[in-house]
């Protein structure tokens, strides 16, 4: 699925004394089979615009052949939404009483059919690192991280082309972060999925994103590939991660060290150069 933002703006409370500008004249193209990272303020709106929960105030959004404008009419919205999945941070309201029926309902809503539904549900749970034991549990009674994983399982169950995740790294332990980073890479490389990460933590995007966009004052101020992580201009807007800070310090001291985004690779490099 190809996504194009064409001079798109989104303003809330335009008529009030304090209008809130989320996006201002943003133009962007997202190609199928890539991982895109967005970092900055009020980026949740990107997910809501892509899912057509909110409409652009100005400009247009192209989702394959469908053009979403402020007033355009979309026939059968679920056909469009079926191609996408969006996880909003802190909004895990489950409607059914157990995990199994929750996933089943989502599959039914999006008209996704498979031969063995039960196996498909169990597989969806396993992908996100949950066992079969969770099938009969009430999703509303689970912990924050478990709810997040069940939500991701719901999203993966109907096999969307685009997966949008807001602050997904929040609440995950280091091992789980690595697991999910690998999972996203696998989804991209093996299944040609597009993954859009809306986050405030740049370290979560290290090593996985193909394109990084920094949003400041409703505009994209920096857009670039994975090498952008080592550009000084990026850190005008966000806090510099420790690994970048360390590498830059070592380089300033006159040592020849490569720019790594993986801490293990960096440690190996240091070992190789210790004399």
């Amino acid at each position: 699925m190809e996504i194009v933002f064409n001079k798109l703006s989104y303003v809330e409370n335009k008529m009030s004394s304090s209008p809130k500008n989320y996006l201002d004249n943003v133009s962007l193209e997202i190609k199928q089979g890539s991982i895109i990272g967005f970092i900055g303020e009020n980026i949740s709106i990107i997910g809501k615009l892509l899912m057509v929960i909110k409409r652009p105030s100005k400009g247009e959004l192209k989702l394959d052949n469908i053009v979403v404008k402020r007033t355009s009419h979309i026939n059968n919205i679920n056909l469009l939404r079926k191609k996408m999945a969006f996880m909003i941070d802190d909004n895990f309201n489950f409607i059914t009483d157990n995990v199994k029926s929750e996933i089943e309902t989502v599959m039914k809503n999006y008209n996704y059919h498979t031969k063995d539904v039960n196996k498909h549900i169990v597989d969806s749970l396993k992908i996100v690192g949950l066992s079969e034991d969770y099938l009969d549990r009430d999703p509303n009674e689970l912990s924050y991280t478990e709810k997040k994983k069940v939500n991701l399982a719901c999203m993966l169950s109907y096999n969307p082309e685009v997966i949008i995740l807001e602050n997904f790294e929040k609440g995950l332990i280091a091992r789980e972060r690595t697991y999910f980073k690998n999972l996203f890479l696998k989804l991209k490389n093996k299944f040609n999925k597009t993954i859009i990460l809306l986050t405030k933590d740049i370290t979560f995007m290290f090593g996985i994103v193909d394109n990084l966009n920094v949003i400041n004052n409703a505009k994209i101020v920096i857009s670039g590939d994975a090498d952008t992580f080592y550009e000084n201009k990026l850190y005008k807007y966000i806090e510099m991660p420790k690994i970048v800070e360390f590498t830059k310090y070592v380089q300033e001291q006159g040592h020849n060290i490569l720019e790594y985004v993986d801490i293990k690779e960096l440690i190996k490099e240091i070992y190789r150069n210790v004399k």
């Binding site: 939404r81 079926k82 909003i88 909004n91 895990f92 309201n93 809503n109």
Partner: peptide
Amino acid sequence: DTLGDTLISGEIKGNVYTH
């Protein structure tokens, strides 16, 4: 507020409300 959140959550999961 909770109803609004649930409607958005449901909307994402295919229970269309706005349309």
